[in-house]
């Protein structure tokens, strides 16, 4: 029972990180109509920046802040140099162009930081366990949950309650009309992309201490973020939130408990052969079911 609650918390934590990534992706797609495969590279760069700056400053939070700023800047530069010419092209061009960017970033990281992974220690102040109703849960993971929830709340307020958010929503529902009404679409696009980059960077730097910082780390999680967006409905931040938490919990629980559940039904050798394959299939099966029932995702954006 304790294990179940702990794994649920782990799932929540993973799901919220996925949300940070998926929110940026869905914003960029919803507003700019840009398929950005290089979003995972920004996540990876966030983690590498964090590992470097934390080692450099000797303080986790100062390093994390610098890494966030660096990813944001990188996002702006990337948007202006590489992605701007891609607007208005078809999706295939986006896929190819940003696929090229992934190759570039992976190789750049290999060139600068070397092929071996880096590790970023959990900040010592947070390297303890917190007692939540009798369950000892790592403080750092709890911090991830809290920060992600705060960011989700911040996103909600920005998008639903501010003038910038109004412009973002206007741009999402009808780009041409928003432009015709005098919204500086170019600036809006840069801002949205920078926001997405910062969210990806934040996910990367927060995730870094609990896994190895390595080349290609962005790609696996990017595909999960795609699954989240497909389930949630493209362009919907609310959908991304619900789907991300759902995917995070299902994936984590599946990996933790599926082997034991299978062992109840099957012989133990059959279960241990089947379990790893099946538990990694779980969220894709989930996606297939959602697609079969609702091809536009759980929270389709109206007018699309």
């Amino acid at each position: 029972m304790l294990l179940l609650v702990e794994q649920c918390l782990n799932g929540l934590q993973f799901g919220l990180l996925l949300f940070l990534l998926a929110a940026g992706l869905t914003l960029v797609f919803g507003i700019m109509d840009l398929v950005n495969l290089a979003h995972g590279s920004l996540y990876m760069m966030g983690a590498y920046f964090a590992a470097t700056f934390v080692a450099w400053t000797g303080n986790f939070f100062a390093g994390a802040f610098l890494a966030l700023a660096a990813t944001l800047l990188l996002g702006i530069v990337l948007e202006m140099l590489a992605l701007r010419p891609l607007y208005g092209r078809d999706h295939l061009d986006h896929v190819l162009g940003t696929f090229g960017l992934i190759l570039f970033f992976n190789e750049l990281v290999r060139l600068v930081w070397g092929p071996a992974g880096l590790s970023l220690p959990v900040p010592s102040a947070l390297n303890t366990a917190v007692d939540i109703f009798g369950i000892y849960y790592p403080a750092y993971r709890l911090l991830i949950i809290l920060v992600s929830l705060l960011v989700a709340l911040f996103l909600y307020v920005v998008v639903m309650r501010t003038r910038l958010g109004m412009l973002i929503r206007a741009g999402a529902s009808n780009r041409e009309m928003a432009g015709a009404l005098g919204v500086d679409i170019k600036l809006l696009f840069t801002l949205v992309f920078a926001l997405g980059a910062a969210l990806a960077g934040l996910a990367g730097l927060m995730h870094a201490p609990i896994l190895t910082v390595q080349i290609g780390m962005g790609e696996n999680i990017l595909i999960l973020a795609f699954v989240v967006i497909v389930i949630g409905g493209i362009g919907s931040i609310r959908g991304a939130f619900v789907a991300a938490v759902f995917v995070g919990v299902v994936d984590t629980l599946g990996r933790a408990f599926l082997p034991d559940l299978l062992r109840l039904a099957l012989s133990s050798t059959a279960a241990s052969t089947l379990a790893p394959a099946l538990s990694s299939m779980l969220i894709y099966l989930l996606m297939a079911i959602v697609l079969a029932l609702r091809p536009q995702g759980l929270f389709p954006v109206a007018g699309r």
Binding site: A82, G97, F99, G100, L103, F104, E107, L108
Partner: peptide
């Protein structure tokens, strides 16, 4: 590090 050349090349070709 050949992919560092190939990547941007793809973008330019696109």
């Amino acid at each position: 590090y050949w992919q560092i050349i190939l990547g941007p090349m793809l973008l330019l070709i696109v």
